[in-house]
Nucleic acid binder design. Structure first.
Length: 424
RNA sequence: GGAGACGUGCCGGAGUGGUCGAACGGGCUUGACUCGAAAUCAAGUGUACCCUCUAACGGGUACCGAGGGUUCGAAUCCCUCCGUCUCCGCCA
C-alpha cells in the first residue's frame, strides 16, 4: 500500500496518480486519509503522555515500598489506577482511529509511474514493440478448441465431469507438451540467474494481503474456510511473501526467484464467447519470475525481465507484441505493467501470455519488506514479477499457428523437451 | 490425531513480579595499539509509531511467538491460539 508518509509528503503527486488510474474522488479520498491521520496522531500523543505518567508513578511505588513508606505507596497506587483507566479509554480510541486509517489505506491502489500513458481501458494501451511473422493460414485453419479434440490431447468434458468447467485433462502428447514447457521455462530462467523455488500452493491470510490480493481480489481466489487458507492465483503470492517481515542486508540483494505452480482463479462472472477453450481456465500452469530490488534499480530490472520474457517468445517462434498498460487498465498494485501478447492464428486474436510489473514499494509496505542502507537506515524495497510464462494460451497459440495438414509442428527449442516434433 | 517439552535481540544463552529493551558470551561497527594483519583494550550495535517546523540530536510510548487477562507494576503469573522439538498413532 501507499504509506501514510508518502501521502503526507507527496499529496499532490498521489492525487494526480490516482486520477491517472481513474480512481473516483481521489481528492476527497486523500483528504479523508490525512484527516484521519491527524486524528490518530493527536490521540496517540494523549495516550503516550498518560502512559508515561502512569509508568513514572508505578516506578515510584516500587521505591516507596522499598523504603517502607506504606501510606505514600497506597496514595500512589490510587493515582496509578485512575491513570490506567484513562489510558484504557484512550487506547480504545487509538485502535479505532488506527483501524479506520488502515482500512482506508488498504483501499487505495498504487500510483502509476510517470511514463504510464493516460487512458481508461485496454484500447488506450500503448504498443511498445511487435515482433515475428503473423502466420498466413488457409481458410480451413482451426481454433485450438477444435484441434485439441481432433488430436485428442486436451479433454474439457472429462474435466467438467470430474471437477467442473475450466478444469481440463491433458492427455498423451498434450500432457507431455505441458511437461516440456515446464522444464523448458524453468531451465531458461535458471540459466538467466533466477533461483528455483517450489512454493506451497496454499497461503494464509497475511500472505494474501501482503501481495495485494486481499482485500481487492477476494472473490477471485478459492478459499478453504476450514483452515482459513487461500489457493494461490499465482506463484507471485507465496514467493514474494517468503520475504515478508524481513530486513535484508545489502549483500543479499538482488533477489531473483523462479517458480512453477498451478494457479487457481474463480473468474466469477467473466465467462463468455471470447474465452473459449484454453483462453481462460480455473486451473492453469504458470512459471513465474520474481525480483526484489533496491528502489533505484527496479526499473532497470523491469526492462531486464521484459526482455527475458520476450526471448522466451522468440525461442518459441511466436509472433508477439509488447503492450504498456494505460493508467485505467492497470492492476490495483502495479506502478508499471507490460503485457506480452501472442497472436493465435486460428482464432485471429492476440492473447495475453505474460504480465510483467513493477510494484515499487507498494507490496513491500504491506509486507514490511525492507533493507538496511549503507548509512544504516531501513528502507522499503521494490518488488517485481512476471509470467515466464503462462501455459494455456502459449499452448493455444502453438497449436493454432503450427497446424499443418500433417499435424502440429513443435518449435525446435521445445523438441528436446517433448521428444517428438509433431502432434498427429 | 494423542502425550510431553519448549518459543527471549544478528547468533548462543541468562533472567520466575518492580530500577529489564533486557545479564553474559559470540558476531558486527568505530577508535586505540601495529608498517600491516592477528591478538589485546575501549566504546557502540533492534524495530515501529509519536513529540520537537524538517533533519541531526533529544524526549515519549510499544514490542521478550501472537492475542487476551490478573496487578499500581509482567519477559516473569493465568487463558486461548500459532509454531518448533520428542515419543506414540497414521501415512505418500
Amino acid at each position: 500500500m501507499l504509506t501514510i508518509q508518502q501521502i503526507r509528503e507527496q499529496k499532490e503527486r498521489v492525487i494526480a496518480g490516482l486520477e491517472k488510474k481513474r480512481v473516483a474522488g481521489a481528492q476527497q479520498l486523500i483528504d479523508e486519509v490525512l484527516q484521519r491521520d491527524a486524528e490518530r496522531r493527536q490521540i496517540q500523543k494523549q495516550h503516550d503522555d498518560v502512559l508515561a505518567e502512569s509508568n513514572r508513578v508505578a516506578k515510584s511505588i516500587g521505591q516507596l515500598m522499598k523504603t517502607g513508606q506504606k501510606e505514600e505507596a497506597e496514595k500512589a497506587k490510587a493515582q496509578a489506577k485512575s491513570l490506567k483507566e484513562e489510558a484504557q479509554r484512550l487506547v480504545e480510541a487509538l485502535r479505532e482511529a488506527e483501524r479506520k486509517l488502515q482500512e482506508l489505506l488498504a483501499t487505495i491502489p498504487n500510483i502509476p509511474h510517470e511514463s504510464v500513458p493516460e487512458g481508461v481501458s485496454a484500447e488506450d494501451n500503448e504498443i511498445v514493440e511487435q515482433k515475428g511473422e503473423i502466420p498466413l493460414l488457409g481458410e480451413d485453419a482451426l481454433p485450438h478448441w477444435e484441434l485439441i479434440v481432433k488430436y485428442d490431447i486436451i479433454d474439457f468434458e472429462t474435466g467438467s465431469k470430474v471437477t467442473g468447467s475450466g478444469f481440463p485433462f491433458y492427455k498423451g502428447k498434450g500432457a507431455r507438451l505441458q511437461r516440456a514447457l515446464l522444464n523448458f521455462f524453468l531451465d531458461r530462467a535458471v540459466e538467466a540467474g533466477y533461483v528455483e523455488v517450489q512454493p506451497p500452493v496454499l497461503v494464509n491470510e497475511a500472505s494474501a494481503f501482503g501481495t495485494g490480493q486481499l482485500p481487492d481480489k477476494d472473490g477471485q481466489m478459492y478459499h478453504i474456510e476450514r483452515d482459513n487458507l487461500y489457493v494461490i492465483p499465482t506463484a507471485e503470492v507465496p514467493i514474494t511473501n517468503m520475504y515478508r517481515d524481513m530486513i535484508l542486508e545489502e549483500h543479499q540483494l538482488p533477489i531473483k526467484h523462479v517458480g512453477y505452480t498451478p494457479c487457481f482463479r474463480r473468474e466469477a462472472g467473466t465467462w463468455g464467447a471470447d474465452v473459449r477453450g484454453l483462453n481462460r481456465l480455473h486451473q492453469f500452469d504458470k512459471v513465474e519470475i520474481v525480483q526484489i530490488r533496491k528502489p533505484e534499480e527496479s526499473y532497470a530490472a523491469l526492462e531486464e525481465m521484459r526482455h527475458y520474457v520476450q526471448s522466451l517468445l522468440e525461442a518459441l517462434e511466436l509472433p508477439y507484441r509488447v503492450v504498456k498498460l494505460c493508467g485505467g487498465d492497470m492492476s490495483f498494485t502495479s506502478a508499471l505493467t507490460y503485457d506480452m501478447e501472442v497472436f493465435a492464428a486460428g482464432q485471429k486474436k492476440w492473447l495475453e501470455v505474460s504480465s510483467v510489473s513493477n510494484f515499487e514499494s507498494y507490496q513491500a509496505a504491506r509486507m514490511m519488506l525492507r533493507y538496511r542502507t549503507e548509512n544504516k537506515k531501513t528502507e522499503l524495497l521494490h518488488t517485481l514479477n512476471g509470467s515466464a510464462l503462462a501455459f494455456p494460451r502459449i499452448v493455444a497459440a502453438l497449436l493454432e499457428n503450427n497446424q499443418t495438414p500433417e499435424g502440429i509442428r513443435i518449435p525446435k527449442a521445445l523438441q528436446p523437451y517433448t521428444g517428438f516434433d509433431i502432434i498427429n
